[in-house]
């Protein structure tokens, strides 16, 4: 029995040496697994201020990372981390997260605000936030079931001018009341 094990160990040892000599460059899984400590396993976040990446489009993640890297989008650690990856590595991670199913969150939301948001969203935001926010046009992020506190923090950055709003979004958001905006965020957070 011991001999058998030794023989097996020797065989795998040989394999290990030959494999180690030619370790492949980091794969999409190798790269994106490291993000999951903060963004959740497979990009499904359990933390209310941390966005889920699962189900975001490739373009949305690529553009977000590019803007974090350049400093155009305000961030805390994301700017510092984005600088650690090449464009090709970002694309590999973005592709992987885009193939995950949208992460469904369970959060406490206001029913009246959801209803109000539902009445506002199609005519105001629906052209870019497609399918009740389950999808996004071009690099527009998916908003469905995203964490409310995360979206509120981002909207505060938009409204204060810290984060630059896309022109088309600005046209719609500028005339809205704070209550309307809040209602829209509750609506998107509620979509399952």
């Amino acid at each position: 029995m011991i001999m058998k094990w030794r023989g097996w160990a020797l065989a795998t040892g040989v394999l290990a040496v030959s494999a180690m000599a030619q370790a492949a460059p980091p794969t999409a899984a190798m790269l994106s697994n490291a993000c999951a400590g903060c963004h959740g396993t497979n990009g499904g976040s359990a933390g209310p201020t941390m966005p889920s990446l699962a189900g975001q489009s490739k373009e949305a993640i690529e553009v977000a990372m590019k803007k974090f890297k350049s400093g155009e989008r305000p961030g805390t650690i994301m700017g510092r981390l984005a600088k650690g990856y090449s464009e090709a590595e970002v694309t590999a991670m973005a592709e992987l997260f885009s193939k995950q199913k949208l992460h469904i969150t369970t959060q406490t939301l206001d029913k009246a605000k959801i209803a109000k948001g539902a009445s506002l969203q199609e005519s105001n935001c629906g052209r870019c936030h497609i399918e009740d926010g389950k999808e996004g046009k071009d690099d527009t992020p998916a908003m469905a079931s995203q964490w409310l506190p995360y979206m509120q923090m981002q909207m505060a950055d938009y409204l204060s001018g810290k984060r630059k709003m896309p022109e088309k979004m600005k046209e719609k958001v500028d005339p809205m009341s704070k209550e309307d905006i809040e209602a829209l965020l509750h609506f998107y957070a509620s979509v399952k």
Binding site: A19, Q22, A23, P25, M30, L31, E89
Partner: peptide, 11 residues
């Protein structure tokens, strides 16, 4: 199978 080079993060 072939091994994969490390890519890691600390936060």
């Amino acid at each position: 199978k072939e091994t994969t080079e490390l890519s890691g993060i600390n936060v």
